[in-house]
């Protein structure tokens, strides 16, 4: 599974992209975020307030209960500010 971080999440996590292999019970976006938090203090800082974290799975917006699995591309980013 590939995880991408954008904007201040990237700065806080200290990484823009990583390949991870969470255990099979990590099967939803919500469970994945919980698992990622434990990877480093930077990850914990980036994911401290999930109210300001948006998630896309395979480049489509996803909610915390959406399924994730091996081979998925999961992107984590703040609310968008383009235009």
């Amino acid at each position: 599974m590939k995880v991408l971080y954008f904007a201040w999440l990237k700065a806080r996590a200290g990484i823009g992209e990583e390949t991870v292999a969470p255990p099979p019970e990590v099967a939803t976006v919500g469970a994945l975020l919980g698992w990622l938090k434990a990877r480093s203090p930077g990850h914990a800082h980036a994911l401290a307030d999930l109210a300001v974290v948006r998630v896309a799975v395979n480049q489509e917006y996803a909610t915390l209960d959406a399924p994730v699995g091996p081979g998925d591309e999961v992107a984590l980013f703040p609310p968008v500010t383009g235009g």
Binding site: A7, A56, V80, T81, G82, G83
Partner: peptide, 14 residues
Amino acid sequence: LVDWLKTKAPFWKL
């Protein structure tokens, strides 16, 4: 289009 792209398109301003 302008209203929606501001809230949907994944851009971030630094």
